[in-house]
Structures are given as C-alpha cells and as structure tokens.
Design a protein around this nucleic acid. Structure first.
Lengths: 196, 196
DNA sequence: ATTATCTATAGATCTATAGATAATGC
DNA sequence: ATTATCTATAGATCTATAGATAATGC
C-alpha cells in the first residue's frame, strides 16, 4: 500500500498538524501514537516511517504549534486599529482562546509540562519563546530596548498565567474575572508607561 | 500484616505527602500508584484501602499541596521586614523555588494540566486559588477591596506565568532574566500604585 | 526494485481487584 | 473476629519493531 511522494509529504503534514492540536488539547501524554494516526486515517505502525520517535514528534509539533500562533499574532497586530498591545491582550485573553486550547498558545496549553520534557523539546520551545518576546517587545511602550524586553517578558508571563488560571477554575464567572483583570492591568500599564 | 490504627493513619499521611510532592515534580500522570506506594514503603495493593481511586488521591494531594504552600506564604509574610509583596515575590521567584517544584506552588507545577482534570479535582483547586488570592489581596496596595482583589489576581498570574516560563527555557541566564523581570515589575507596580 | 503503509506482536506499564496472610484489639 | 497489608493477576494501554503487502517510479 505504497503512496506517492506527494501523498506521503501530505500525510506527514497531517500528522504534524493533528499532533500540534491534540498535544495542546490533551497534553503530550494525553494522546497515543495509535490514536493520533487513527485521527489522520492511518495505522499506527506507519508512524515510524515518518518520525524517529514520539519525542521527535513532540519537538516538531511544538515548533509547528508556535509557528501557527506567531502567525496569528502577526495577523492580529496587522489588523489592529487602536493600541496593538490592547489588541493582542484582548485576543489572547478571550473566551474563545480559553475554550480552544488546541489552536492556541502552547505555553498556556502544556506550559507546566515543558520542564519535564527532554532537552530536544525544550530547546525548540526556548527558541519559540524568544520569538514571542520579540513580537511583544515591538508593541509595548518603553524608552530603551532593554526596558521593552523586560516589559515584554512580564506581559507574556501574565498572559500565560492568566489564561492557565482561567482555564483551571471550575467557576465560569471567576474565569471571566481573571481574564478581565489581566487584560485591564495590561492596558493600564500601557497608559501609565507612555506617561513616564 | 495488619498494623495499628495509629500506624494506618500515619501511612495515609505519608502517602498523601509523597503524592503532593511527586505530583508536583512529575505531573499527575508522571507517577503510578505502585511507584508512589513503593516510595512510602508499602505495596501497591494496599493503596485502595486508603483511597477509593487515584482520582481521589489527586484531589486530596492537591489540597495538601496548597495547604502547605499557603502556610509557607503566611510564614514569609510574618517574617518579612520591609514590603510584604516584595518578600512574597522574592520568595516565589527564587532559584530555589524554580528548582524545587515538589515543595512549591501547585499552579506552577501542574497548572496547565488542571483544566484536563475531573470536576472533583478542579473544585478543590478552585477553592485553593481563592485562598491564595485573599492572601495576596491583603498585601497589595489599592484604594478599594475590589481594586486590591483585581491586583491580586494579576499578581498571582504573573508569578505563575513567570515561574513556568523560567522552568521551561533550556537556558539558565534566560531563566534568571525572566524571574528578575517579573520580580522587578511587581515591586515597581507596588511603588507606582501607592502613589496614585 | 523500491518503499509507504498495514498487520501482528513484543515487552512495558498502568489502574484496580480478589483472595491470602498475619497482626490488632475486642 | 476484624482488618491493614501483601501477593498475584486481570484487563487496558502504550511505544516500538518485524515482516507482509501493494502501489510508485526508475
């Protein structure tokens, strides 16, 4: 049951996309190679023709997830009318993002598991992190490059922490309160810091 | 091989403590009932005489972890000389905390897995969250109760996000930069907001 | 002829339970 | 007599591999 080169390349893409989504929805250990291949419509034995191991897939799917997210961010910033930081915060801290981890931020989806991953995975994720910081640093106010970078790190930390907390609590109004509190603090900070 | 009632109660405590630590170190799925019982020096079959299921243990061990952390926080605040918020932030964002998840904040250790837990677990964790918010709200500056609560939520989100990011990156200087950026932003916010 | 996929399975590992064992506590 | 723990195991599930199959592409 061999397929064409093009079809095989397409299968690889489908496996990667499904993994990028499922890992964010269920965690790295929450989906097996067999279930993942079944999602794509293939049998699990064929997986090892595409990837060396599940670990390799975790690294590549994480990269894929972060690339997709960075593209979404760029798009949000391009289409923002007013303050770009407000636009990003509103996008990130939305109910939609909270309810759809599969297409959202990798750090909010599996953040606390990253430290338990092998180096190959953490390396890829560290590079992705730097990219998100660069994007945020380009839209936060601040006199020097160093100050903007520092503020970008704090901004990203509060976005991730806020989304994780909102998803964690078993209380919808409380989840909404968390999302709004973080969003409000970021826009207040923006205002405060353009003044000094 | 029956043991005394006192010994049995002690075993239960030891299982709970070991679970509270191991879950934070390895994740809820990162340690099996058998390995956990082996750590305590018992065989895995005996586990089900103490707890109904692993799910029940996850809920009770999460509660235990949060109780321990809340006690540590109270202690840090009691022994703080200067600004209590600075003291808590310095304690939370320390290398020590970053390197020892087993005795640290549950949200930083397994935060992104909470949303995938059954309701019984999320309920316990939601109650714990409210307690941490109350503690932080008692030490952040702010005119009204509502403003202090909002600021407490944002503070906790940035602490958790900062620690998760610091633990995630495969680059020690970058991890330090993240911890310091968040710590610095919290003490700056404190200063700014006592002024207005 | 080459090779992408499938079938079948090895070897671990996990939660949970049943029945045996042996020490407590009436 | 009661019961906390242990031994053994059922029944799932997981990653990875070996060999068979059948379609591609020289």
């Amino acid at each position: 049951m061999k397929v064409s080169k093009e079809k095989m390349a397409q299968h690889r893409e489908e496996i990667l996309s499904a993994a990028a989504k499922s890992f964010r929805e269920r965690g790295f250990d929450g989906i097996s190679v067999a279930d993942l291949m079944r999602e794509v419509g293939l049998t699990h034995g064929g997986f090892y023709g595409h990837f060396e191991s599940k670990e390799e897939l975790v690294a590549l799917a994480s990269q894929r997830a972060m690339n997709d997210t960075a593209a979404r961010w760029e798009n949000v910033l391009k289409e923002a009318n007013g303050n770009p930081l407000d636009a990003l915060a509103t996008f990130y801290l939305s109910r939609r993002h909270s309810e759809k981890p599969g297409t959202g931020c990798l750090f909010a989806a599996i953040g606390s598991d990253i430290s338990r991953q092998p180096f190959s995975v953490r390396k890829v994720i560290t590079d992705g992190f730097q990219r998100f910081i660069d994007i945020i640093a380009s839209i936060v106010p601040g006199k020097t490059k160093e100050l903007r970078r520092e503020k970008a790190i704090v901004t990203y930390a509060s976005l991730i922490g806020g989304l994780i907390l909102a998803r964690s609590v078993a209380d919808t109004p409380l989840a909404t309160e968390i999302l709004q509190a973080v969003a409000s603090s970021l826009s207040q900070n923006g205002i405060l810091n353009t003044q000094d």
